[in-house]
Design a binder for these strands. Structure first.
Lengths: 113, 113
DNA sequence: CGCTAATATTAGTTAAATCTAATATGAAAG
DNA sequence: CTTTCATATTAGATTTAACTAATATTAGCG
């Protein structure tokens, strides 16, 4: 591990400044993590066409209410969704355009062919 | 699990067909999961400007060789990178345009402001 | 062949994610 | 104020991910 001079000399200033932008990398990793579960991707896809109450989501994705609630909590904690109370129901939706963008990109990349 | 007919009838054909495209969702989740670690995001960013030998990556990201090797194995297992042997060295690079696209999108979304 | 450099692999431990099943909260109805 | 519906929360068990530190593999050099 001695040779410190790499003739290769990677210039990644146009990509990521790995030192200076480590905060953004953490953030990106956290977002990816939040999306790294099939159920959560499904939920985000559903919400990208508009808000939904929890029960609707439960029926759409096919698991238990408690489980959906847990996954919604994860998405909420990572600021990918927000919620709105309406009487007994709670509606979830996407409020961040970046999230919409990521979901659209995901669909684009994985659901093309 | 009894009621097979959901009167709710979510129309998500324009987003994801959650039944039919569950395979793509699994795939997307797996890709997100592969990217859900800061070190792996760093590596992918580095590789998006060209191939690199393991040692170069180790020096660029600042952890142990064994650890980088483990993360590279994860990226390789999820088909996000491939490798090429050149003498004693092994070069890793991105061979899938979709991966390039995802990395670019990630940079775009998280490294703008 | 024996050595070294580059990389991979393994074992062991600790931490985090996930599911299930049960229970709690809280709003609205009556 | 009791019941009910919608949602959240918790506990416990299981699985998966992660790091560290050590060891294995393998190519090339001399």
């Amino acid at each position: 591990m001695a040779t410190k001079s790499i003739s290769h000399e990677v210039d990644n200033t146009d990509i990521f400044d790995l030192i200076g932008k480590s905060h953004q990398i953490e953030e990106a990793a956290a977002a990816m993590q939040a999306m790294s579960h099939p159920l959560r991707i499904k939920i985000l896809c559903l919400l990208s066409s508009g808000e939904m109450a929890v029960q609707e989501i439960v029926e759409a994705v096919g698991t238990t209410q408690g489980n959906v609630s847990q996954h919604l909590a994860i998405l909420k904690a990572s600021n990918m969704v927000v919620s709105r109370v309406a009487g007994k129901q709670i509606f979830y939706f996407i409020d961040d355009k970046r999230v919409v963008k990521i979901v659209a990109m995901t669909r684009d990349v994985f659901c093309s062919t």
